[in-house]
């Protein structure tokens, strides 16, 4: 079981935020195969959001093969995403941390850092194609 939150001013559709949080919990090992997701009633009541928003998110998770509904019982996680990736990626994270410290030391603010990351990250596939 996990608990959802919602940032209505983020510009990201609420159902996508729910999906993202399930994936994130799977990656962090907070959710594992066989875990039950909160019911639509619990999520709608907890966040004060339209129940259809929750249903839409759960359907999408089912479609992605991450969850399955058992009628009358609930929606359950059908996949575990954790393996050892968190631990395995620790060195990468540390390098990124170092890079971020250097960027901040160079006087870059968060927005500029994000801009550098995006502009470097996005064009990659095209470079490869050339």
């Amino acid at each position: 079981m996990i608990e959802f939150h919602l940032d209505t001013r983020s510009g990201v559709a609420p159902y996508l935020q729910l999906i993202h949080q399930v994936r994130q919990a799977l990656r962090l090992g907070l959710l594992r195969e066989g875990d039950r997701l909160p019911t639509v009633k619990e999520v709608a009541g907890g966040l004060a959001i339209n129940p259809n928003t929750v249903l839409k998110a759960y359907r999408e998770l089912e479609y992605e093969g991450l969850a399955a509904a058992k009628p009358g019982v609930g929606t359950f996680v059908t996949k575990t995403l954790t393996d050892d990736s968190i631990a395995a990626h620790a060195p990468l994270r540390e390098e990124l941390d170092e890079w971020l410290s250097r960027a901040r030391a160079a006087g870059l603010d968060d927005e500029s850092i994000e801009a550098i990351f995006r502009s470097t990250f996005r064009p990659q596939p095209q470079e490869d194609a050339v």
Partner: peptide, 8 residues
């Protein structure tokens, strides 16, 4: 409370 699952 899981009853309404699965249909809008």
């Amino acid at each position: 409370s899981a009853a309404p699952e699965g249909r809008p």
